[in-house]
C-alpha cells in the first residue's frame, strides 16, 4: 500500500531575520493525525519556525509543503487558498476586538462558504460549544479571561473544519488548572476531529500529557536535536542536553 503523504514536510529549510540565521538546513515531516510539539529553549526559533510553516514569513532557502503543496513558492492567491485549509491559534487568541465571539467565529464562514446566515450562526455556535464557550456568543474579547480567549481563538480556527491546526504557546500565561483544561480540550478535539495538531510550546507538563511526538530545537546547532516520543526522550535520549531539558535540569518538585 502506498504511504500517505505527510501533512507537513520541511525540506532543507533555512530561516531567520535580516542577516541573522535562526535555524538552518531543517528537514522533517509530520504525518497525518496526532499531536506534534515543537519545543526548545527561549530564542531557539520555535515561533519563527511556526510563522514560516503557516506562510507568514518567507524562508532564506528550502521548502515547506503543506498537504503536498509548497507554501513557499505558492502565488498569493494559492497561498490564501492553502491557508484556508489549516487553522491557527495565537498566543493571545488574536480575536478581533470589534467583533463578538460569535461574529469572530462566523467570519471565516461568512467569507469562504455559501452558508446562509442561520446556518452560519448554527455552525459558529457549535464550534463555541466544542470549546465550552456556549452562552458567550455576544461577549466581546475584552470581556473574557485569557484562557477563554484562547479557547475562542481555537473555535475560530476550527470554523472551516481544517485537517491541520497550529498552536502558538497555548498554555502561556495560563494557571495550571486552565492549562490542563485546554490540554484536555485538545485531546478531545484530536479524538473527535481526527485532525493533526502542531503545537509550539515549552510547557513540559503539557507536552508529556498530550504530545505523541516532539521536535526539539537547539539554538547552538540551529537545528533539530531530538525527534521522537517526549516520554521516551526524557528517559532514553542519548543527548545529555535534551535529557536535561526534558527533566528541567533535574529540578522538579518531589514529595
Amino acid at each position: 500500500m502506498e504511504k500517505a503523504l505527510p501533512i507537513v514536510e520541511v525540506c532543507n529549510l533555512t530561516i531567520g531575520y535580516g542577516e541573522n540565521i535562526v535555524l538552518k538546513d531543517l528537514s522533517f515531516a509530520i504525518d497525518r493525525g496526532g499531536i506534534c510539539t515543537i519545543l526548545g529553549g527561549s530564542g531557539c526559533g520555535k515561533s519563527t519556525l511556526l510563522k514560516h510553516l503557516i506562510g507568514l514569513y518567507r524562508p532564506f532557502s528550502g521548502d515547506i509543503m503543506i498537504q503536498g503543496r509548497s507554501i513557499v513558492t505558492a502565488t498569493p492567491k494559492e497561498k490564501d487558498l492553502m491557508m484556508r485549509g489549516f487553522g491557527v491559534t495565537y498566543q493571545s487568541g488574536a480575536l478581533f476586538g470589534s467583533l463578538t465571539l460569535l461574529e469572530n467565529v462566523m467570519l471565516p464562514l461568512e467569507e469562504f462558504t455559501a452558508m446562509t446566515r442561520p446556518q452560519r450562526i448554527a455552525a459558529a455556535r457549535e464550534k463555541l460549544a466544542m470549546v465550552e464557550l456556549d452562552g458567550f456568543d455576544n461577549y466581546y474579547p475584552a470581556e473574557l479571561s485569557g484562557g477563554m480567549r484562547k479557547r475562542a481563538g481555537l473555535a475560530r480556527a476550527l470554523a472551516l473544519e481544517p485537517e491541520l491546526l497550529f498552536f502558538d504557546e497555548p498554555s502561556a500565561g495560563l494557571d495550571p488548572l486552565t492549562s490542563a483544561d485546554l490540554d484536555r480540550l485538545i485531546l478531545h478535539l484530536k479524538d473527535k476531529l481526527g485532525a493533526t495538531f502542531i503545537i509550539v510550546t515549552h510547557e513540559l507538563d503539557s507536552i508529556f500529557a498530550i504530545a505523541d511526538r516532539c521536535l526539539i530545537l537547539d539554538k547552538r546547532t540551529k537545528g533539530v536535536v531530538a525527534d521522537g516520543d517526549p516520554r521516551e526522550l526524557r528517559e532514553k535520549s542519548a543527548n545529555p542536553w535534551v535529557k536535561s531539558f526534558l527533566n528541567r535540569n533535574n529540578l522538579r518538585y518531589c514529595n
Binding site: 510563522k51 507568514l56 495565537y90 478581533f96 467569507e111
Partner: peptide, 15 residues
Amino acid sequence: MKVGEELDALRTMGL
C-alpha cells in the same frame, strides 16, 4: 491589532 497578532490571524485566515 498588529501587536495582538490580529493582522497575522487575518492573513492566515486567507483574508
